[in-house]
Computed example of a mutant assay.
Amino acid sequence: MPMTAQVIVEKKKLDNPPLEIHYLGDRVLRQPAKRVAKVDQSIRQLAHQMLQTMYSADGIGLAAPQVGVNKQIIVIDCEPDNPENPPLILINPTIKRFGQSICDAQEGCLSVPGVYLDVKRPVEVEVAYKDENGRPQRLKADGLLSRAIQHEMDHLTGVMFVDRVENGLVLAEELQKYGFSTQAVKPFKS
């Protein structure tokens, strides 16, 4: 597991997180993110603020478009209660390989608070990315980490997990219950 060296974030909730999370229906969530040309201190600062915002919202992943930043950066921490486990920062991530097995599991999203629905995704994934120091990395992941990587990477292409939900009736009920419009969903065709 790659170690995060330069971005140290205390895993705690802040009363005033540094970034504002955008919600389903906001156009910023549908724009494809641009590649990061150079990994520098401003990118590390953004990743730091993204992590603070994610921890403050009780999340395990956050993509830059969710905080209104059109850059290919995602942060993930599948163990937010474990101070020994460093978070992952993935810059310009690309999926190199998907595993053969597909799994249906419940997902939620900080941009669609309260809504948790089943989504089918490959169980395993291999991803290439740059770390917060600009060094190329590769990571093979399965289980929750694999799902979190795929979910956050979808945000970089303007896809949201609700777009992948197959049960339209349950989707409509859940969105309505939490005040979201089904008009904001763009069904994903793979």
Rank of each mutant, 00 (worst) to 15 (best):
M3T: 08
V7W: 12
V7L: 02
K12T: 03
D15Q: 10
N16L: 02
P18F: 10
P18M: 09
Y23C: 03
V28A: 10
L29G: 08
R30S: 10
R30H: 10
R35E: 04
A37G: 01
A37T: 09
D40N: 15
Q41C: 03
H48S: 12
Q49C: 12
L51R: 01
L51A: 04
M54P: 05
G61H: 11
A64D: 02
P65S: 06
V75M: 07
I76L: 15
C78E: 13
N82S: 12
I91C: 04
I95S: 02
R97K: 14
G108D: 09
L110E: 08
S111F: 00
V115S: 01
D118R: 09
V119T: 04
V119H: 09
V119Q: 07
K120Q: 07
K120C: 00
R121A: 01
E126Y: 00
A128C: 01
Y129E: 01
D131H: 09
N133K: 14
G134C: 10
P136E: 15
P136F: 13
G143E: 03
Q150F: 07
E152Q: 13
M153T: 07
D154R: 13
D154N: 15
G158W: 11
V159G: 00
M160I: 13
R164H: 06
G168S: 15
L169C: 08
V170Y: 09
V170E: 15
A172G: 05
E173M: 12
K177S: 05
K177N: 03
G179D: 05
Q183W: 02
Q183E: 11
A184W: 03
F188M: 10
